[in-house]
Amino acid sequence: MSDLGFDTTLKKKKKVKKPTTEDSPGLDSKESTPQPPTDSSVDELFTGLKKKKKSSTKKSATTNEDSSIEKSKSPGLDEDLTASLGDLSLKKKKKKSTKNLDLNEFEQQLEEAGVEELGNINNNNNSQDDGFNVEQENLNNTLKYEDLLSRFFSILKKNNPELAGDRSGPKFRIPPPICQREGSKKTLFANVQEISSVLQRNPEHLIQYLFAELGTTGSIDGEKRLVLKGKFQPKQMESVLRRYIIEYVTCKTCKSMNTELKRESANRLHFLSCKACGSTKSVSSIKTGFQAQIGKRKKL
């Protein structure tokens, strides 16, 4: 079980991997782009489109307001734009270049027109909608479903990593355990509090589990750090934490780590209830089990 948030290479993440690379040849032949349509190229395309959107919106705003000044130039621009939008058989690269041209021209026009468009926010918004629609149409016609899907997932991952099945998001990234030696016989587990808060567990519960699993005892110092008897490497702590997470944190049904540990007072059992799928499962209580007598002999 190496996929428990410690690694960034989660199994789930792999599953969501974009399919763009698989169908790159088909795209290549269709659109005849010089470079394979990887993510970066798609991104490029989108940034280009955004630029165009901006330019078109601003341009329409300026044409509306400063028609007297711009009249001579704007029709040409419009042609340019319709050409680039309408002719879908055009290569992506070419489109981009026309866009850039548009932008340059537009900037020139802006300079000529002065800073007028600050007051025309309403106008801008309206025309922005138009521009967006045009852009949408353009996208639907040029881009393959796979590209759109990968774009959707990249946006989803950026804004809502949980929904994209990415559990390595900031919420469930478990910080690596920090273990320092305290003296020669004790270990200082510095970030128990932090880890237990990430796991949404009572630190007491986690500490109790650590004691039982490591067959040791310990105490909490003034800075809420855990002092364990015995020497433990961070790697060892990590493997114990992994088992704690498997047993007491991950939902057995959907593997989500967004769970809650509740204690039912009626039957004194602990229940793991999932906040993602709503399933509830009883978990065994922590048992220390047999503790061998170490050091002093038992008095008989």
Partner: peptide
């Protein structure tokens, strides 16, 4: 639950350890 066989480890002084089979 009584069916389980628990194999545990305990640290003794230094790097010495002890294995218990319950």
């Amino acid at each position: 639950p009584t069916n389980y066989i628990h194999i545990r480890i305990q640290q003794r002084n230094g790097r010495k350890t002890l294995t218990t089979v319950q």
